[in-house]
Design a protein around this nucleic acid. Structure first.
Lengths: 342, 342
DNA sequence: CTGAAAGCGCTTACAG
DNA sequence: CTGAAAGCGCTTACAG
């Protein structure tokens, strides 16, 4: 015997409270202009019947679905996991729900896939994780269907398209300065892939800090990488062969930093004394290795919450309500055990 | 100018195709009993108008929401990520969508939270990741609301509650046998936490394989752990102090195996020659370390797809349609570089 | 093989 | 401050 068929509707509540369904609707949606006594009466009926408004009916009648979409490409990326976590929590607080969709960034029918989802679900808004947030097809589908969306850490800002990010350049500079404070002078740098905007920004921050401390950067210290473990390992092998050897390595992300750690340990170096290593992202693995990685924590949870807030606000303001633009959120330096004095 | 307000409805399609909306509905839902010519006509109109049926209207009228819920606790768990990935992909193929919800396993109002979600969304079914799949409040809320659900790797099976899992015991035995084949005799084992059912099963598999090869298990080789990195490291420190030293360590999961690796390397051991290590789970980090971990890959993607299939089938069979019960899916041994000949 | 009618459970726009 | 009416876009159950 399913309780489903017997679940209370707005009519049941109205009857029990002795009011019209319109009044119940007002109370449930916290609209103003209801007598306090009436409101209490209705709430009592709501509790007694355990009434919960049904999303599909509200959506059909009201044009708001209480659904927020999260579009992402790489599900294993720590970034995406944190975005999702932050977004679901905020959604619960605001009474909406998160629908997730994993899409290939280079799928030929990507635009159609997005269109299909949007037309079926009519989400109140979409959160776009990188790199999908920079995908022209995705943005076109969303724009054509009039779906509000928020870009998370996009490669570049688009006028009229709200985006949330941290300051990669500033964080990289800070991290580099921390290394310098610990006495390091020969600090190597492993870059991220050129197609990701964060790569250049982090490198710029590093250079800025080095220059600010009056330190020359030997071009041999700068190695290419692709944000993956292997590239970090390869870069470290080259760096460790240098004479004199760098005393510290700044890897543009944690996965590569793990590669640097592995390469150094394979050569029998005692860490962190023989080589200091820092990463970026505060990936889950960052504290699962030895030495635990000093790194930068992105304000992803805060960004995700804000994204949900922006969408809900825009919805309240009516369709096409303009979202606030381009915000930069504060990051945090996480100091662990991978840095020693030079 | 939002395209939303002008999106085609079933009425538009019916008019263009010169049929009733009921016929359009039949074609769109692939119901039998429509003349081939009529079907083609309707499809043409659907394409021309780019018509997509709206979830909320279908849900309200038909009692199927095309929404599937995924309930999980720890978002950073690799298991959950894989489940989600497999589920979203299958959902897309079947025309439904995945709504995710992160819940604290010990939240006081857990039951209400689940109830609230279910009453609002009326999902066609729920996928329950561990440890939530064993939570009495969650199961009660789902059962009371008549929501079909599938347990992923539950601690124990419940009659009438469908579950999907792998054979932990068999996999652990296989992995142990592989170690034995490589010449290892003194194989240590790091346990998982006692409250997780997989812990006991993996230990049993290990013991079984050892006994099968006629090898005695020294009680000192069995160390307690809690599935976390640190516990693996601590266990390894104790094991490496043994005389004679074990030549291989079977850690009950990858995170602990990483800890074993770290402890061994901290003592200057050359891996994998001086110590073979195997894990369990094939976590993302398993191939990000050196030596890359030999481990067991759970059939999570297959489990997730199956879970979606079961829910969709049950829905087609009508409310409360019974789901198939208790299936065990095949796993895979992933051999990398962390095992050397003894 | 096809369609006219009723209704799912809400919100909107309008009155009073 | 409150309510009666209409309608959102579909599917169900029933005819023919």
């Amino acid at each position: 015997v399913s309780t489903r068929s017997t679940a209370a509707t707005i009519v049941d509540v109205a009857r029990l409270a002795g009011v019209s369904i319109k009044t119940v609707s007002r109370v449930v949606n916290q609209e103003p202009g209801v007598h306090e006594h009436t409101r209490a009466q209705v709430m009592k009926a709501v509790e007694a019947l355990r009434y919960r408004p049904q999303q599909s009916a509200r959506s059909l009648a009201g044009g708001r679905s209480f659904l927020i979409g999260l579009l992402y490409y790489d599900p294993s990326a720590a970034f995406v996991g944190s975005v999702q976590q932050g977004a679901t929590l905020r959604c619960r607080e605001l009474g909406c729900h998160l629908v997730v969709e994993s899409l290939h960034n280079d799928a030929p029918d990507l635009k159609q896939q997005v269109e299909r989802m949007v037309m079926a679900l009519r989400p109140d808004g979409m959160i776009l994780a990188p790199p999908l947030c920079d995908n022209a097809d995705v943005l076109a589908a969303l724009s054509e269907t009039g779906t509000p969306c928020v870009q998370m850490s996009p490669a570049r800002d688009t006028p009229g398209l709200p985006s949330l990010r941290m300051d990669d350049r500033a964080a990289a500079a800070e991290l580099t300065r921390r290394l310098i404070e610990r006495g390091h002078r020969r600090i190597a740098f492993v870059q991220g892939p050129p197609e990701q905007s964060a790569s250049a920004l982090r490198l710029r921050g590093y250079r800025e800090a080095m220059a600010g401390a009056g330190l020359e950067v030997d071009p041999a210290w700068i190695r290419a990488g692709d944000f993956r473990f292997e590239s970090g390992r390869a870069a470290a092998q080259a760096l460790l062969a240098l004479e004199p050897r760098p005393t510290a390595v700044f890897a543009s992300n944690d996965d590569m930093a793990l590669g640097v750690l592995a390469a150094a340990q394979a050569q029998g170096l005692r860490l962190p004394q023989a080589l200091s290593v820092v990463g970026f992202d505060d990936a889950p693995a960052a504290e699962l290795v030895w030495p635990a990685l000093t790194t930068v924590r992105q304000p992803i949870a805060a960004m995700a919450r804000l994204a949900v807030d922006l969408i809900v606000q825009a919805r309240r303001a009516g369709h096409g309500g303009a979202l606030a633009e381009h915000q930069v959120l504060p990051h945090a330096l996480i100091e662990r055990n991978s840095v020693a004095d030079a």
